[in-house]
Design a protein around this nucleic acid. Structure first.
Length: 100
DNA sequence: TAGCTGACGCAAA
DNA sequence: ATTTGCGCCAGCT
């Protein structure tokens, strides 16, 4: 019976699922992802995971800061901004709009 | 086992 | 409006 992978705890799994479910043209803050993953307050941990995460199945570039800023990115904030804009996310003066 | 770091968040100045 | 400091959580050494 396929044992569970000990790749981190359920935390990583939950976060990955949430980020994976982020529709195109939409962005979620680290805190929002953490809360959606049932880990409220673990915004930092989310970032820590994203940094370690190298899964192309997880559009980590769609995860931004709660302030509306892009935040950091493995490939550089510039690439992140370009990718988000290409996805349909409007960015004004470095701030992401559409943050309902 | 314990401690440090870090793609964050929020409050205060 | 902008900048500085502290706090919180999980992961890694």
């Amino acid at each position: 019976m396929a044992k569970k992978q000990h790749t981190s705890g359920s935390f990583a799994t939950a976060v990955r699922g949430v980020v994976q479910h982020i529709p195109r043209g939409r962005v979620m803050s680290y805190a929002a992802v953490a809360a959606a993953a049932h880990f409220p307050g673990a915004a930092r941990a989310v970032g820590t995971l994203m940094r370690q995460n190298f899964n192309p199945t997880v559009p980590c570039h769609r995860v931004i800061r709660a302030d509306g800023r892009l935040g950091q990115y493995n490939r550089g904030t510039e690439q992140k901004r370009q990718r988000l804009e290409r996805e349909g996310v409007q960015i004004k003066n470095g701030r992401v709009l559409g943050t309902v």
